Simulated scan of single mutants.
Amino acid sequence: MTDIMDKLQLYFSYPFVRYAFIVGLLIALCSSLLGVTLVLKRFSFIGDGLSHVAFGAMAVAAVTGLTNKMYLIIPVTVISAILLLRTGQNTKIKGDAAVAMISVGALAIGYMLMNLFPSSSNISADVCSTLFGSTSILTLKKADVWLCTIMAAIVIAVFIIFYNKIFAVTFDENFSKATGIKSDAYNLLIAVITALIIVLAMNLVGSLLISALIIFPALSAMRLFKSFRGVIICSAVISVICAAVGILLSILFSTPVGSTIVTADIVVFLIFWITSAFTGRAKA
């Protein structure tokens, strides 16, 4: 136990490790807030689709030699979120088909570009790192940390300010429109926030694991709670705790950060699922 504490103390003596830890918690919090809305709206896989778009944008940024890849990844992912929302409302192309189209297309194009115009001699390592996250939180740069912190603060503020509107749009869009709420505008806002969270989480868990970070805490909370507020609070607590545990374990055992966090989320989901099977859902 003493060796573990000494190792953690050593790592956390570096400022960039502390920054990365804080960013990880902020990303987990943002993902959990949005995850509840996406799950209830039956649009959970938008995270998976946009994560593949972000992967494709990152491949293009690497090929073109951009110093800060975020300048390309953020606008491309946001625009794709808007197009995905519009396409999903098309009666000829349903939401799940639109996600599949964008997801597979962006992933294939991104991987092809990385092979045709390799930015390094180890393409497999680059692809693996992008898809599943970096092997250590120490790879996060200070500039990335501050950018993620600011964007996470904006996402949280937007969700708090428009909480009532998002709640109404999540459960009944037709009723929301009847009461004068601009449902399309708030759906667009949700899509844009989702895109920002996807970009935030790429360096932490990788593009393939982002949807798990969004979905699992919400699904876990729904095993025991019925109210929207209860689910959101529980989901946020679960997500933050799992992120903290995952990052600490990745430091101690040198495991990939993303996979470790998602594994912690899966374990918690199984615990909540078993608990709900025996006790039933709690009234909140």
Rank of each mutant, 00 (worst) to 15 (best):
S183W: 08
I102T: 07
S211Y: 07
V60K: 00
V240P: 05
N164I: 09
I233H: 04
V145E: 02
A168M: 12
A108W: 03
F159E: 01
L200R: 01
G230D: 03
A153V: 08
R18P: 05
Y186N: 10
R281Y: 09
L38G: 03
V199T: 08
V237W: 04
S227H: 07
A284S: 14
I181F: 07
M58F: 11
I93S: 06
G24H: 07
V39I: 14
W273P: 01
L189F: 06
M1F: 10
S13I: 07
P118E: 09
R281H: 11
D184Q: 10
C128G: 11
M5G: 13
K92P: 02
I193Q: 02
S254M: 13
Q89P: 01
L72V: 09
V245D: 04
A54Q: 01
A106E: 02
L196S: 03
G246D: 04
D48C: 08
T263S: 13
L147H: 05
S129G: 10
I266A: 12
I74Q: 06
F117W: 15
T263G: 12
N122A: 14
V23T: 11
S129D: 08
I215V: 11
I123G: 06
T67Q: 14
L249H: 05
I241P: 03
T279Y: 15
R42G: 10
A282S: 11
I261E: 02
V99I: 15
R229D: 08
F132I: 07
K41T: 10
V36G: 02
V237T: 10
K41F: 10
I22V: 14
C148A: 15
I215D: 00
A81W: 01
L213D: 00
V158N: 02
A282Q: 09
Y71M: 14
S32M: 03
V257F: 03
V199W: 00
I271Q: 13
I238N: 01
S13K: 11
T91F: 10
F272Q: 03
P118Q: 09
I27E: 01
V231C: 08
D6F: 08
T87S: 13
C234I: 02
V169N: 02
L107P: 00
F12T: 11
L8R: 07
E173N: 03
G65R: 03
P15Q: 14
F278G: 06
T139C: 12
F175E: 13
L85C: 05
S136T: 12
N90T: 13
G105S: 13
K141R: 15
L26A: 10
M58S: 12
I241R: 07
V104H: 06
I160T: 10
L107I: 04
F132W: 07
V36C: 11
L40K: 08
W146Y: 15
V127H: 06
L252R: 08
F228A: 08
V145F: 03
M101I: 15
N203S: 09
N164H: 15
L34W: 00
S183E: 12
S80T: 07
F162C: 13
A57C: 11
